[in-house]
Amino acid sequence: MENPHSATLTQEQGSSLWRDGWIRLCKNHLALFGLAVIAFFCVIALLTPWIAPYGYEQQDLQLGASPPSAAHWLGTDIFGRDMLTRIMYGSRVSLLVGFVATGVALVIGVLWGTVAGYAGGRVDAVMMRLVDILYALPFMIFIVLLMVVFGRNILLLFLAIGAVEWLTMARIVRGQVQNLRHQEFIEAAFSMGLSRWIIIRRHLIPNTLGPVIVYTTLTIPNVMLLEAFLSFLGLGIQPPQSSWGLLISHGVESMEEYPWLLVFPGLALSITLFALNFLGDGLRDALDPRASKD
């Protein structure tokens, strides 16, 4: 960024595309509903240690698995732990993994893909071959190696999942950028003397938003389930800590005897996914000025 005025430019853009997008999003009730649901879940997750009805390791072995009741709204598991409490604590891990790992994937993937697609030629070839190599690397071995080297750590889990998920994102963005790169408005921006970085940030990335947002909303649930899978293998979260994925995979085992162990965490995950999809679709339309206004 060799130009002192570039800072002003960014604010200027903030005043149009994103502000118009927000106004349009506010007119989309379904998307607003999705946003509200996600915000609600996030608030609950943040406040869990103070508002949870029980402690997360508090067991009642006498009670065992009991169906929903006045004392335990969503029932208890086989160790007599309150399911509502476990789901609330689980949401902390699941939402955090979902958002942070997806965020990591989003940032790396979009930047990597844009740079590769815009630079083209050999830079592109090298960058994308690296992506191919990482694709070919077996995911499990990669994660296990990370765990062995760095020990079990929730931050590492975020990084590991994010490091895998960005590959697809990079490919999607690169394809988009390659199409956009030869459009005349990019050439116009270049002939105006704008620096490459500003062209990437102001002209290329905003125009890749559509597919990126849709893919992001698909990545978040993916990541949540991936975490469950890793936890199931003993690589992620361990009981008595919980996550939605872990609760679901335990719930599946005793689905026939104690269905509520599966139903409630499953419901929490599904509602989140629906909300995310509504929000994602809404965002995509809101940030595309060409989408119909109704």
Partner: peptide, 26 residues
Amino acid sequence: FQDPYASLNPRMTVFDCLAEPLLYHG
């Protein structure tokens, strides 16, 4: 440019489009 449909960034308003060169070049 020839094609006025391709030479304008679809996500920038008229203001953004015209202000960009002015601001960038000071």
